[in-house]
Computed example of a mutant assay.
Amino acid sequence: MRQWLNKTFYYKSKFYQLANMNTKHLAEGSTNPPLSKGKLRLYSMRFCPYAQRAHLVLDAKKIPYDIVNINLVQKPKWYFERNPVGKVPAIELESGDTVYESLIIADYLDEIYPQSPLHNKNPIQKAKDRILIENFSKVTGAIFGYYRDMSEEKLENLLKELDVFDKELTKRGKTFFGGDKPGMVDYMIWPWFERLDALKKISDNKFVIPESRIKKLAHWMKSMKSDEAVKVSYIDPESHGKFVKSFLDGSPNYDILVK
C-alpha cells in the first residue's frame, strides 16, 4: 500500500519536481524552506555529479521528494546543521534525521524503499558491483585531469580507464551493468558520462572518444539517455559546458538554468 501511494504521489508531483530542480541556489543569509509533508528533502547542487546520484536513485524508485539547491561557495549557515561537512548531496527525513554522502544515501534509499531494487540480490555480485563503483574514482580523476590539461596524454589516460568499464560491460553480456535495465552501478557512474559531451564544447571539439574502441560502453551511454530516471535530471551538454567554464574560471555560476 505504501509503495502504491508513493508512486501515485510521485507521478502527481512530477511536473512540480522538474520545475523545482532548477531553482536558485540558496546562499548565506537565506532561510531553509519548511519540509513538505510526505516527502524527503534533497539538498543538492544542480551541476554536481555526486548530487545527481541521489536524484537518479530517487527518480528510479519513484520516491516523492523536494529539492533545495545549495550555493557551495557561499553556503548558508543553517545548512551545516543538516550536514556538518557542508557538502551535497544530503537528504533530510520528516523525522529531522539527515543522511549524507552519495553512496551512503543510495544504499539507504535502496534498503528503505524496496520497490525497484537497484542492488543485485546476490551477495557476491553485489560486492563486485561495489568494487566496480569504488574503482570508478579512477575515471572521475582522469576526467578532472583532462578538464585541467586538455592534452593527448590526459585523453589517453581517460580512455584507458574507460577501457576497463567497456571490458566489464562486454563480459556481463547485457545492455546495462545491472542487466536488462539500469541498476546501482549504472546510476552511480552515469553522471560523469553525461558530462563527457560537455568536454567537446569546452575543448573546441578536440575531445573525441573513438566509439570503435569502447563499442559496448558507447551503446550503453545511448541507452542510458533513454532511461526515464536519467531524463528527469539530465542537463544538455551546452549548459554543462557553461558551468564547467565558470567553475574553471573560479566563479561557478550555479544558477545558469534558473529562469
Rank of each mutant, 00 (worst) to 15 (best):
A142C: 12
I214R: 02
S44Y: 14
P33S: 05
M45L: 14
K200W: 01
I67L: 00
V230T: 12
K61C: 08
E168C: 03
N71I: 04
H55F: 13
I133F: 06
W4Y: 04
D107R: 10
K39H: 15
Y11L: 05
A106D: 00
G250V: 04
L5K: 10
V139N: 02
S95N: 11
E28M: 06
V88W: 03
H219R: 11
P49C: 11
K160L: 13
K12Q: 11
R148Y: 04
L257P: 05
S212Y: 04
F243P: 01
K201N: 10
S13C: 10
K77D: 10
K138V: 07
D59T: 15
I104S: 02
K37A: 07
Q17T: 12
P114G: 09
S13V: 10
L132M: 12
K75A: 04
N22A: 14
R41D: 05
K14F: 06
M184W: 06
H240N: 06
K206F: 12
G178E: 07
K75G: 07
K245Q: 14
K138Y: 11
I133T: 14
K216H: 14
A27M: 11
I91C: 07
W78E: 08
M188W: 01
P33V: 05
T23D: 11
K201C: 13
E238H: 10
Y254A: 14
K75F: 02
M184I: 15
P84V: 07
E153L: 13
F193I: 14
L158I: 15
P117M: 04
P182E: 07
E238Y: 07
I209G: 04
T98V: 14
L158R: 01
E101T: 10
Q17L: 15
I70Q: 00
R148T: 10
L72K: 09
K160Y: 04
R148D: 10
Y146L: 09
S102Q: 02
G178R: 08
P210G: 06
A90R: 01
D197L: 05
K39E: 13
Y11P: 03
F9V: 11
E194M: 08
E238C: 01
F136A: 12
R195I: 04
R2P: 03
S223V: 01
H240F: 06
I105W: 00
L40T: 02
D166I: 01
Q17S: 15
